[in-house]
Design a protein around this nucleic acid. Structure first.
Lengths: 116, 116
DNA sequence: CTGATGTACAACCATGTTGTTGTACGTTAG
DNA sequence: CTAACGTACAACAACATGGTTGTACATCAG
């Protein structure tokens, strides 16, 4: 299992994608069962194109992937990306605990030097 | 310990707040050591007012809180909110595992009825 | 072939975000 | 008291976001 290391932009996209109720709902649904975009779209009070855009945001974030199947695109949730985000949040808790890990590389700005 | 139940808007604010590198960096910093807004501002290549806004976004999300201290406002990270977000992501993994929990209330839209 | 379905994508509008500068005001230092 | 500091907030510009409608095109059903 490749434990994909996230760069800043990927983290941005993941959290931004999760910051919308419709998208969180889509993720929850397609984690258990894949669904075509149009089937998903039926569930929400917005146009097909709007749902399509939400799926695109999730796909760019790596939270779902689309697989062509005839004229449909089956959307599946990617639990690995969820896990990567969870791990990231866990690291904040580690920081809080004082075990700084090497979060410096991941989140902190350079130019440090907290002195001895 | 009160395990604050998050509503949709709070979740929106938390993830949106985390979807920015400057804000994630601020959170990481003030989790270990509180800092005034101006001290924080020195670290970033943007105006004081811009940093002030980032702190405000974090505060609205409950990720930090500000405590007046003389003419300064000391910013401290709130690990409980981080934990709430972590728990939320964990629930997605639970969904994926098929143990649906009662996420329906939290994320799924109403009007369900997955057949007899 | 034809028509209905599923998707993609562009154009557009309204609103929110992220940065800026400028002003105002309370607090601390001297 | 006065000057410097720390913060708050408003106004503005640039850009991103989230929705809409319309068009185009591939695929499936008959």
């Amino acid at each position: 299992m490749v434990v994909h290391q996230l760069d800043e932009d990927e983290v941005d996209r993941i959290f931004a994608a999760l910051a919308d109720p419709t998208r969180r709902d889509i993720v929850a649904r397609v984690l258990t069962r894949e669904a075509s975009v149009s089937v998903l779209a039926q569930r929400y009070a917005m146009s097909f194109a709007a749902v399509q855009k939400h799926v695109a945001v999730l796909e760019r974030a790596g939270l779902v992937n689309k697989q062509p199947h005839g004229r449909e695109r089956l959307v599946r949730g990617d639990v690995d990306t969820i896990r990567a985000a969870t791990r990231l949040l866990d690291q904040y808790e580690e920081i809080w605990r004082g075990r700084i890990v090497r979060l410096a590389d991941l989140l902190a700005t350079p130019g440090e030097g907290e002195s001895p």
